[in-house]
């Protein structure tokens, strides 16, 4: 009790006369808000004007498609193993080409994905990277499971993320 009254006394002492009559302080506060009213706005009017994230942004994970039209993925399954949300499913298959293995089926369940980026970190081939795509909306659960058709993205679109990974990974 005595402590509170002491601190109260001290605070009253700290206030000057002009602070105690409130009005100059209120005027100061009003001036501050008015200054903010005429300042430029931060709002980004989303559907018309879109946010372009920096390379460090972790958006929807995608598979890299080489310029030759081949996918980089060798279906080692590491991403699927490391995924903490169990969102990735990979089924490997073999070909006669130089790079023997490829994913026959590669599915990411976007309802499970937590955008941690571990798949990208663990990938030995730089085949799965996080894109800048953040517009993920589905009307039913089936749509949320992205197969190879949706995941494969040309390498030209992912260059700055790959560069970022080489620099900081």
């Amino acid at each position: 009790m005595s402590q509170t009254s002491n601190s109260l006394k001290k605070r009253k002492k700290d206030l000057t006369f002009w602070q105690k009559i409130y009005i100059p302080e209120i005027a100061k506060g009003l001036a501050l808000t008015f200054k903010n009213m005429v300042r430029p706005k931060f709002t980004m009017e989303y559907p018309e004007e879109k946010f372009i994230p920096p390379p460090s942004y972790r958006g929807r994970p995608v598979l890299v498609l080489e310029e030759t039209g081949e996918e980089r993925c060798v279906a080692c399954g590491l991403c699927s193993r490391v995924c903490p949300a169990l969102a990735i499913e990979v089924q490997a298959a073999e070909t006669e080409r130089e790079k023997e293995r490829y994913p026959e089926k590669f599915e990411i369940n976007m309802l499970r994905c937590i955008f941690c980026g571990l798949c990208e970190e663990v990938c030995p081939e730089e085949a799965i990277v996080m894109s800048k795509d953040y517009e993920l909306a589905f009307t039913n659960r089936e749509d949320a499971i992205y197969g190879k058709d949706k995941l494969l993205t040309p390498v030209s679109q992912l260059e700055d993320r790959i560069e970022f990974l080489r620099k900081y990974k």
Partner: peptide, 13 residues
């Protein structure tokens, strides 16, 4: 609108 301006937003538009 004024609430938005005071907070550096645009407000209903």
């Amino acid at each position: 609108k004024i609430a938005a301006w005071a907070q550096n937003r645009i407000g209903p538009n």
